[in-house]
Write a protein that binds this DNA or RNA. Sequence first.
DNA 1: TATTTTTGTACCCTAATGGGTATAATTATG
DNA 2: CATAATTATACCCATTAGGGTACAAAAATA
Lengths: 67, 67
Amino acid sequence: MNTSIATFIKEKRKQLKLTQPELAEKAGVGLRFVRELEQGKQSVRLDKVNQLLDLFGSELGVIQKTD
Amino acid sequence: MNTSIATFIKEKRKQLKLTQPELAEKAGVGLRFVRELEQGKQSVRLDKVNQLLDLFGSELGVIQKTD
DNA sequence: TATTTTTGTACCCTAATGGGTATAATTATG
DNA sequence: CATAATTATACCCATTAGGGTACAAAAATA
């Protein structure tokens, strides 16, 4: 994917018709974290992001920069 | 890549024949961070990881889980 | 447009990341 | 082997991420 982490999660969440509180609950992370992440906060913890991505069968990995 | 973030950075670093202190210096992160990251620590900050990956023209992105 | 639902912003607080550094352990080199 | 270089572990400490929560703003719906 070429989308940012933020938009990826936001779009996947909507595909499953979940609200932010519901996603946070399912992933076992805080609501604040979901919100900040979807708003593009960079200084987030890697393991927390992976907790969310895991719900979508994905994870963070090294990719080539496209610029 | 299918390698973990830790091994990716460690291998790239060796390709450039850099020591951990040198890599930390170049990336503008602390030495302790480089060490913990190469040892597979999960609860690291995303932006710090990207600071390192940037030296190799790469970054963190969403990938499909291979399991 | 009124009402409900969802999302964004703000606050307090605790736990822990990351920086610096010293020292032990390990590895590479003479 | 002995020595140097690199890496791993351990400590203190300031900053801050993230949880909880309340309320404002925005979006969706009747």
